[in-house]
């Protein structure tokens, strides 16, 4: 095992870190600008709507209005608004929810976020592993019945939206066959705890949403990996290895290692859309995750809560992105050993 070169590794990771921070800054700025730039100013509409409702419950409403005015900095110059927005974010203050007034957005969201992570991360990784394996095997046995089977099914499956597959699974396994629960994250009446009963209930409710994400995501990975394997099998080093008389399995091992790199990058880029799909899947299953609370926030136009959800989700995605970059840097010998560029 050659010695790991620390400097290029740190340089790579540092560069990625800087890029993600910069991108996050842009994302935050977009989140700040949007409500102020969109014609018809949704914010003032929201305020006037609250003012109308004020007749019913003057006390709370005027409190809500006051906190909104203050948090959005209504009436102050835009640059002051922006700086105070950033300042509050930096201190971890994501504003006050309208629906759940006077609760802070972060406190409202906190119980929902683990559910989404618990659903999304294992499902995405499982799909990534299965899809890559299937695609690699298919590409390696190109032109056989197995390749055709994997490719043709993947072409259709990869286009099934998570949520529609979820609907089909609920209809088949819950409504028709009655094997799995139709909705929720755990049985009604149970309180979240670390008891055996609660955990089994959670796992039981987990099966269908998990499967709908895994199955729908496998196809895309399989198609991509299959193509990469076909390209690699055509590369000079492979042909050289085959002509040297290396066993097919050994050659395949090298090929597989090479296709993993772009697929790791792919995983990072895919996380955003996977999250989007998972949010809607949660909605279909009435799963108590971020998608569920986002839907509620959207239907009541609770803008502070909506903003907070996005600030957090984007941070989560970038954090995951950074972990993937880190893994990439460890796996890629060009970065690990400091040979070549490897960008």
């Amino acid at each position: 095992m050659p010695k790991t070169a620390l400097k290029p590794f740190l340089k790579y990771v540092g560069r990625r870190f800087f890029f993600l921070i910069l991108t996050y800054f842009v994302a935050i700025t977009i989140i700040f600008i949007l409500p102020r730039a969109i014609p018809g100013n949704p914010l003032s509409q929201l305020l006037s709507r609250i003012a109308v409702q004020g007749a019913a419950n003057p006390e709370t409403i005027s409190n809500v209005q006051k906190s909104l005015m203050e948090e959005f900095g209504v009436g102050k110059p835009i640059i002051v608004q922006y700086l105070s927005f950033l300042g509050r974010l930096f201190r971890g203050d994501l504003g006050t929810s309208i629906n759940f007034y006077p609760k802070k957005c972060l406190d409202v969201l906190a119980p929902f976020i683990p559910w989404t992570l618990f659903l999304l991360i294992p499902a995405t990784l499982t799909a990534w592993i299965i899809g890559n394996t299937l695609g690699a095997v298919a590409g390696n046995k190109r032109g056989t019945w197995m390749d055709n089977l994997v490719l043709n099914t993947s072409l259709v499956i990869s286009q099934i939206p998570y949520y529609w597959l979820g609907m089909l699974l609920i209809y088949t396994f819950s409504v028709k066959l009655g094997i799995f629960p139709t909705q929720g994250g755990y049985a009604q009446g149970l309180l979240p705890s670390f008891s055996f009963k609660f955990i089994t209930s959670v796992l039981y409710h987990y099966v269908l949403p998990f499967l709908s994400i895994v199955i729908a995501a496998i196809g895309g990975w399989a198609i991509g990996t299959r193509l990469l394997v076909i390209y690699e099998l055509d590369a000079d080093y492979t042909i050289f290895a085959v002509n040297l008389g290396m066993r097919d399995r050994t050659v395949f091992k090298y090929v597989f290692r090479n296709i993993l790199l772009p697929q790791i990058t792919g995983l990072a880029l895919n996380l955003g859309s996977a999250l989007g799909g998972a949010l809607i899947t949660e909605l279909i299953f009435n799963y108590p995750g971020t998608g569920y609370i986002l839907f509620r926030a959207l239907s009541t136009l609770d803008y502070p809560l909506i903003q907070a959800i996005f600030v957090i989700l984007i941070v989560a995605i970038y954090f995951a992105n950074f972990i993937v970059d880190f893994v990439y840097a460890i796996v890629d010998p060009r970065i690990r050993l400091g040979q070549g560029e490897g960008s």
Binding site: L20, V26, L269
Partner: peptide
């Protein structure tokens, strides 16, 4: 381009759409 690529487009689409009546 890389910045736009890294910002999760579905989330941003949801956010923009939520402000349009």
């Amino acid at each position: 381009t890389n910045i736009v690529l890294t910002i999760p487009s579905i989330l941003l689409a949801i956010l923009i759409a939520s402000y349009l009546r």
